[in-house]
Computed example of a mutant assay.
Amino acid sequence: MPTNEIRIPKQKRSIEKKDAIIVASYELFCEKGYYKTNTAEIAKAANVSTGIVYNYFHDKHDILKEVIGLYISRLESEFRTTLSRQIQKEDLHNLVKELLDALITSHTMNVSAHNEFMALALLDPEIQNYFVAFEARLLAQIKELLISAEFSSCFLEEKLRIAFGIIEQLCHDYIQQIIDEAQLSRSKIVAVQAITSLIEMDVEPEIK
């Protein structure tokens, strides 16, 4: 069990030091990988002593959680503009296209970060929960936006999860270079039409 007493920074200088540690860690984890980075390297990159690192974090895993939080906040910023406005039913095609483009951008803005953090999520349930919560928040916002535009709420959550799966697969195929730019452009057209049709589809609950 960690025994160091963690300080919560309140003054500007202390907050800046903690933020510097998180940013330095983010960059090192992307460059070298989480497991190949040690706290001494983090301290040097952040221009603080190793002791200062342990003033704010129990251990490297504690830092990782803050780094994942930073990464997810950057992901969420990609959707803020699109999800902060009201839409009409006839805007659905453009909304889906905007969300698709935003998801592709969020995957490609730092491919090394995406690959490293997704690999860690497969091994660490606590880290995986960060991404599960991010997906849940994103889909809940999209659902609320669609309901406000008077789309049926029936099976809407299930439709959005299927749609998200389609887009995730497309994004992964692209960043793993399974498909090229031309194939991505064609796939985006198919995905937008498929997801638009899926959301507009009437689904009747089975009566048992």
Rank of each mutant, 00 (worst) to 15 (best):
T3I: 15
R7L: 15
K17M: 10
K17P: 01
D19H: 07
Y26V: 04
Y26C: 04
K32P: 03
K32S: 10
Y34L: 02
T39W: 02
A40P: 06
A43R: 00
A43H: 00
K44P: 00
N47I: 03
H58I: 08
L64F: 00
I72L: 13
S73I: 09
L83P: 01
N94W: 15
L95R: 06
L100R: 12
D101R: 15
L103R: 09
T105N: 13
H107K: 04
H107L: 04
V111S: 03
A113W: 04
N115E: 09
E116P: 00
M118T: 03
M118Y: 07
L122G: 09
P125L: 08
Y130S: 04
F131Y: 15
F134G: 10
E135D: 13
A136M: 11
E144K: 14
E157K: 02
E157G: 02
K159V: 06
R161Q: 12
G165K: 15
I166G: 03
Q169G: 11
Q169I: 06
I175H: 02
Q176M: 09
I178H: 08
I179T: 05
D180K: 13
S185G: 01
S187E: 01
S187W: 00
S187G: 01
V190P: 04
Q193P: 05
I195H: 02
D202S: 06
E206T: 08
K208F: 10
